[in-house]
C-alpha cells in the first residue's frame, strides 16, 4: 500500500506492505538511517522515534498504521545546524560512547525535556525520574550516569531560555 506520512516536518510517501515495520520504512524506504535497530523486539529502544508526539519503538509499529501520522526521528531533532539542547549536552557530558543507542536516547530525552516531564522537580527527584522515563532505552557503554547528567544539563538550559 502507499502510505503518506509527515517525517521531520516533511510530507513523505512510501510504497510498502502494511505489515512492514516503521523502522524499515524509515531506514530503507526513506533512507533515514539515524534510527537504529538493536533487537527487533521492542526491548532496547535504539529505534525510538516520536509518532504523533509520543515516543515509540519503530521496530514494533506496523507501517500501515503510520499512514497520515507524524513521525520525528533523530534527524529531526536539530533545527538546521543547531542541535537540540539534549544533543549538545550528550556531547558535552560524555553521554554518547559507541553511539548506537544514542539516537534513541536523544529522541526519548528530547521528548521528556520538550514535554517538560521533569519540570519543577528537585535534582535528586529529577534524576530518579530520568531513570524511570528513559528505562526503555538500553545503553551498554555508559553505566547511564553521564546520560542522566546530560539530560539534567539540557533541562537547565531549556528552562533558562
Amino acid at each position: 500500500m502507499k502510505i503518506e506520512l509527515e517525517v521531520n516536518g516533511q510530507p513523505r510517501t512510501a510504497e510498502v506492505s502494511p505489515w512492514a515495520r516503521l523502522l524499515d520504512v524509515l531506514r530503507e524506504d526513506l533512507r533515514l538511517t539515524g534510527t537504529k535497530e538493536g533487537c527487533g523486539e521492542g526491548e532496547c529502544g535504539a529505534c525510538s522515534v516520536l509518532l504523533d508526539g509520543e515516543v515509540v519503538n519503530a521496530c514494533i509499529v506496523a507501517a500501515g498504521q503510520c499512514h497520515g501520522r507524524r513521525v520525528v526521528t533523530v534527524e529531526g531533532l536539530a533545527r538546521g545546524e543547531v542541535l537540540h539542547a539534549v544533543q549538545r549536552a550528550l556531547v558535552a557530558c560524555g553521554g554518547a560512547q559507541c553511539g548506537i543507542c544514542t539516537p534513541g536516547i536523544a529522541v526519548c530525552a528530547a521528548h521528556v525535556i520538550d514535554r517538560k516531564l521533569l519540570a519543577g522537580k528537585p535534582v535528586a527527584e529529577a534524576r530518579a525520574a530520568v531513570r524511570e522515563l528513559l528505562a526503555g532505552n538500553i545503553c551498554r557503554c555508559t553505566g547511564y550516569q553521564l546520560i542522566v547528567d546530560a539530560v539534567l544539563v539540557a533541562v537547565d538550559e531549556v528552562g533558562d531560555s
Partner: peptide, 9 residues
C-alpha cells in the same frame, strides 16, 4: 508495563 515506549502504544 515496559517503559515509556511500550506504555505509549
Amino acid at each position: 508495563i515496559g517503559a515509556l515506549q511500550i506504555q505509549a502504544r
